[in-house]
Design a protein around this nucleic acid. Sequence first.
DNA 1: CACTTTCTACCTTCCAGTAGGAAGGAAATC
DNA 2: GATTTCCTTCCTACTGGAAGGTAGAAAGTG
Lengths: 196, 196
Amino acid sequence: MSNLKTTPDDILACARALVTSGGYNSFSYADIAEVVGIRKASIHHHFPSKVDLVRTLVARYREDAAVGLAALEQNVQNPLEVLRAYADHWAMCIEDASRPFCVCALLASELPTLPPEVALEVKAFFRFISSWLTSIMERGSKEGSLNLESDPRIEAEAFMASVHGAMLSARAYGTPDVFATILAPTMARLSPANAH
Amino acid sequence: MSNLKTTPDDILACARALVTSGGYNSFSYADIAEVVGIRKASIHHHFPSKVDLVRTLVARYREDAAVGLAALEQNVQNPLEVLRAYADHWAMCIEDASRPFCVCALLASELPTLPPEVALEVKAFFRFISSWLTSIMERGSKEGSLNLESDPRIEAEAFMASVHGAMLSARAYGTPDVFATILAPTMARLSPANAH
DNA sequence: CACTTTCTACCTTCCAGTAGGAAGGAAATC
DNA sequence: GATTTCCTTCCTACTGGAAGGTAGAAAGTG
């Protein structure tokens, strides 16, 4: 097994943790250097500027998400269960506190002050998740495995907003389980058992 | 009419605009000084430290919200209409781009890296809005003017999460109207006309 | 006069980023 | 097999600027 983490990977992982905890402006190259065990200048060798670093980070975050969501759709057929797995994924991340927040949800709040290159990547992530959720909603609607009350596209946006808002609340209250509590009514409503 | 804004008020207003656009770490005293037309050191006279400034800002933000929400409840009796007015308030703020984001929703995303004093105020704001929304939900549930599918407390949390998430999406897409679009299904579901 | 407000000037610390050299490995050349 | 060359990585040392904050004097106000 190839456990060999390269230095750029270590830097990106560390940067992701720092971004998720406080956003773009809350960390410095010095912070990363201390955690990774390397000098500041060495980070500049791998990522010439902070913009390069975070742009790469967000782009890779989106790629990883694409792979993960594709795998999820392979393993789980029922659209309702796919959405549940998606929500559960975040619930577990929040409880683990290892990846307690969606990188892009956090960066989106800072969008007006973000460097343009990073802002573009963040916006692309939103469009990606939105279109993926829309496709799930459409499939569920056709199959009858999802109980939609609105257009699939709107349901997808509303679902994403609930997930992001629930992340915020979980962070504000400091109690991870409110995430699942907030999502529960949404999941219940989407279940065809509750169709009216 | 007393249009006379005091200097501390100007500073707070400017700080609020800067916080809503990029969070705690995205602005400096120098930024405020430039906008208000004052020197950096003069700001320190009114707010000795940045923590003092933002703590005061959030505390006053909550007081203003308390006054505004109390007035809203005076003017509008129907709980459903209260919620609609609450959502419309944010929709207008987002379209005006003057106050395009809830200060505390934004600061909540930075909570782990926020100075403790500020973090406390932000958490207090969440509890305040949550309990206010809960009281509205309870009243609407008793009166039959709101169609709740879950516990009023949970409905309140879910509603707040939707609002916050919709703010994020509106910012990410750069199209303010998606806020109203996302909230529409939630509002429709709460209407007693849609009871099942 | 006392008090508040604002100013200039300065401090320390941190920031992103740069210059240039040392260490190491991998070929390619002798 | 030893030496030279090249490239990657990481280092020390530094720069210019911006950060939050301070000291103390000047200007305004009751």
